[in-house]
Amino acid sequence: MSLFWHYAPSLLSGFGVTILCWAAGGALGLMLGFAIALIRRLRLAPVNGLIRVFIEIFRGTPFLVQLFLLYAGGPSIGLRLSATAAGILGLALYSSAYFAEIFRAGFAAVPAGQIEAAVSVGMAPIDTMMRVMLPGALIAAVPSIVNMLIILSKETVVLSIITVPELMYQVQTMAAETFTAFDAIFGMAVFYWLLVEVVSRAGARIEARVTAYLAHQGAPA
């Protein structure tokens, strides 16, 4: 236990970096994924082709590999990033592919009748999107978004490989210096579990709120 006290400052800073990478990467990924889903709706064939390739690459390859390519290969295309910046960018790109799909499914989940109602009163496409489709799509997407954010919080450990000083990195350092691999990593597992617990409870509350008035929605068939 005294070991943990001794390492508290570095563990705390690792915790801070983990939260930073997760929050920043997740937020950027959400924004990028949302933008991709919106652009896709314009149905421009060549653009959508590129988007499909982008999504397939980032969903079809391991995150670790993407991160290596970005950090080690980045400089050769003029992309010089600090480890943390590369980590955040990596998380953002990786998650954006998933978020784009989540938002696409969300838009598809908006009942056609709600859109027809907007069209039949003569609403402009932009208003139909902002006022009718978007809220419906977001409501439908919330559970999947929460799920993806949980997955992403655990993917942050991968950043330790490119020397981002996040929690895993600090724990490994501590373990290597003190030969207490099991205790340190077990402690970290508990920490992540607690983090996910907090996130999923918060997610469940948000879900309950946004779906509260949808619970009995829907006409009898």
């Binding site: 009748g113 109602a117 069209v119 009163v121 809220p135 419906g136 929605q217």
Partner: peptide
């Protein structure tokens, strides 16, 4: 489409499944 929208504004429509906006 703009002209069509203007015409639709003068035509009210009520659907079988109401199609209210749930939010």
């Amino acid at each position: 489409t703009r002209t069509l929208r203007e015409m639709r504004r003068e035509i009210g429509m009520v659907f079988q499944h109401f199609n209210l906006w749930p939010h």
